[in-house]
Design a protein around this nucleic acid. Structure first.
Length: 155
DNA sequence: GCCAACGTTGGC
DNA sequence: GCCAACGTTGGC
């Protein structure tokens, strides 16, 4: 089956795409997701799926580059650790509630694509990211939207 | 720092 | 099951 496309948000002050580049194997587990809809999207991800890496709460907020799913959903250990900021007592090793996927850096855009720029593009009108009040930190991207965003990135 | 939008919690 | 209160997200 053809690969699917996604968008994942991260606050660069917490974890930026530059941080991902510095990580061993340029790979990280996407932990800390505590929203069921976002979790379910991660569970739907397959190895090889492509991800837009989005910088939220940034100046400006922007799509910063591309990553790739390299390991499909498995339990999020940070939910089990009482000292972790993402601790959730409702999730246990016996019955994990939250999952992560592993993603690997593909490319950092030479120039990030600001949110404002995305809003100017008619073909992106329906994009989840641009919906008013959209807060989903993990969301699907339509193939035609993916193509438009990559074009904006100058590829 | 403000606040709109949204998800979750808990009293009833 | 309803819904008010509360907490969080994230653009501005």
């Amino acid at each position: 089956m053809a690969h699917r496309y996604w968008l994942m948000k991260s606050e660069p002050s917490a974890f930026s795409i530059q941080d991902l580049r510095k990580t061993r194997n340029q790979t990280t587990s996407w932990d800390g997701v505590r929203n069921f809809q976002a979790r379910n999207f991660m569970r739907a991800m397959k190895s090889g799926d492509r991800v837009l890496f989005y910088h939220s709460n940034a100046d400006p907020p922007a799509v910063a580059g591309i990553a790739e799913v390299v390991k499909e959903a498995y339990p999020d250990d940070t939910a089990f650790d009482p000292k972790d900021i993402h601790y959730d007592p409702k999730s246990t090793p016996a019955r994990p509630l939250w999952d992560v996927v592993d993603i690997k850096l593909v490319r950092i855009f030479p120039v990030p694509i600001p949110l404002d720029r995305l809003r100017e593009v008619p073909k992106l009108k329906r994009m989840e990211l641009l919906r008013k009040g959209s807060r989903l930190s993990v969301q699907p991207v339509r193939p035609e939207e993916w193509a438009v965003v990559l074009k904006l990135a100058g590829s």
